[in-house]
């Protein structure tokens, strides 16, 4: 790509990010503590404080050095939890999540400003990254390996986790490992299409498609996520972390060989969901007129069971490799 073309195509992302970043106010500033080479995590949260104690522990143990939160007007004491922490910075906003393209513009600006030159993890508070050897090797060892291999992005497949019981009875307490509540996932039933515009591997399936979009699988949400990127100033996320730009970032593998990939364990189907879904139906702040949430609400009201004969109980990353959902690549 020529420089001219690069600038022309990067410009809209840059403008949008700049414009929407005006809505963000820095309320907890520890950014001067970020060192060169630190691993950073970026996320947008709204009333997810209950999940954060375990979340912060989990990613700190993997090797994240600093967390950058965009707080979309939480009212559940987020600041009480974070204000004494020196490894967190928080931006507050009351602005519309939807207008900021579901948070992407906010993230892009922070990623450009603080993430440039760093390996950056962009996840939600209910997403937990598992990668090859994650029980014995740190995230830093993974990023060092990727850098050595000449890759600056890391692909992951989102696995929706659920309990064998009803969603309403899957209670979660602060600090608890969500795997102890939702240990099951669909071991098969993922299919992929390649889409031309951004070259991403569009993967759908899992429990979402099986239960909530059984009547119209074409509408099932995407499960492909490029959550870990060594950021450069002109990079951008286009649609959540499903699609990144430039489009080579969406390529999971090399042209001639496999790269390591991960699984992103996603804990949405907890009893917390009802409250969230009802609120989101009111706000209408989600993708495609929140149709996903309408289906969840229907499912909740009909007490649709998520567990089925084909469900698999999660044990560790090796199981994901055996099921073909994760790749080791050339990592020895």
């Amino acid at each position: 790509m020529s420089w001219f073309k690069l600038i022309i195509s990067a410009y809209p992302h840059w403008v949008n990010a700049k414009r929407h970043a005006k809505d963000l106010t820095l309320v907890l500033d520890n950014t001067q503590r970020i060192n060169t080479n630190d691993l950073l995590a970026f996320m947008v949260v709204r009333n997810e404080t209950l999940r954060l104690p375990f979340f912060l522990d989990y990613y700190q143990r993997l090797g994240i050095n600093h967390f950058l939160f965009i707080d979309n007007d939480s009212s559940d004491g987020l600041m009480d939890l974070l204000k004494s922490r020196q490894d967190c910075s928080v931006w507050h906003t009351k602005a519309s999540y939807k207008a900021a393209k579901y948070g992407v513009y906010w993230l892009n600006e922070l990623l450009r400003r603080y993430g440039t030159g760093h390996w950056c993890l962009t996840v939600d508070a209910d997403e937990f990254l598992h990668y090859p050897y994650c029980d014995t090797r740190s995230l830093r060892e993974l990023t060092d390996f990727l850098t050595q291999e000449g890759k600056d992005c890391f692909f992951s497949l989102m696995l929706d986790m659920y309990s064998e019981k009803n969603i309403d009875t899957a209670h979660y307490h602060a600090g608890q490992d969500p795997l102890s509540v939702c240990a099951w996932f669909d071991g098969s039933g993922y299919y992929q299409d390649k889409r031309p515009t951004y070259n991403e591997w569009w993967i759908r399936g899992g429990v979402r498609r099986r239960v909530f979009f059984a009547d119209n699988p074409e509408l099932a949400p995407a499960l492909n996520k490029t959550v870990l990127i060594k950021w450069r100033s002109y990079y951008a996320y286009i649609s959540s972390t499903h699609i990144a730009w430039p489009k080579r970032l969406n390529r999971p593998h090399f042209s001639d060989t496999l790269a390591p990939t991960g699984c992103l364990l996603h804990f949405k189907y907890l009893s917390l969901m009802r409250e969230k879904v009802e609120e989101e139906m009111q706000r209408q702040e989600h993708y495609a007129g929140s149709r996903e949430y309408q289906r969840y609400l229907d499912g909740l009201n009909q007490h649709t069971p998520l567990w089925c004969q084909a469900s698999v109980k999660f044990s560790n990353w090796r199981q994901c490799v055996d099921l073909g959902l994760m790749n080791i690549g050339r990592w020895f």
Binding site: Y133, T136, R137, F332
Partner: peptide, 15 residues
């Protein structure tokens, strides 16, 4: 020692 295809030395980890 062992080299990877790219000519980097293989790194050994906890496992």
């Amino acid at each position: 020692y062992q080299f990877t295809e790219q000519g980097n030395a293989l790194t050994f980890y906890n496992d």
